[in-house]
Amino acid sequence: MANKFFISCDEATTICDKSQYKEASFFEIIQLKLHFLVCKVCALYSKQNNFLSKLYKSKATNCNKESICISVKEKEEIKKQLEQLKSELSLRNNLVL
């Protein structure tokens, strides 16, 4: 617990990833900044992470524009199978009755 302010690279980069979504706590940010003072590798990771977040964001914007649909043919196929299941079920129910 004495090392509350000194965290490992694994922990630091976890906080760094969390902060990319603005979900790291204030205390975590302090831990992270302190870690950067002694660790250039994680500082580099953080810089690259900002770049990657922008890349992911641009993919997110692309994706959210699309609305994909099941083709008519595939829908007909599902309908057919559903119909079949329905008749099987009703057959079974009749037998029970």
């Binding site: 965290i7 490992s8 690279c9 694994d10 922990e11 590798v41 580099l44 990771y45 690259q48 770049f51 922008k54 890349l55 992911y56 641009s58 993919k59 692309n62």
Partner: peptide, 30 residues
């Protein structure tokens, strides 16, 4: 424990510019 494994330590990127974010090939790579 908790330190970077040597061969997986981040290396400097020379062309991580804002422009490349819109690069289609980079998106395919992603």
């Amino acid at each position: 424990e908790g330190s970077w494994i040597e061969e997986r330590v981040p290396q400097s990127w020379d062309n991580d510019t804002e422009k490349s974010i819109e690069n289609e090939e980079l998106k395919q790579q992603l």
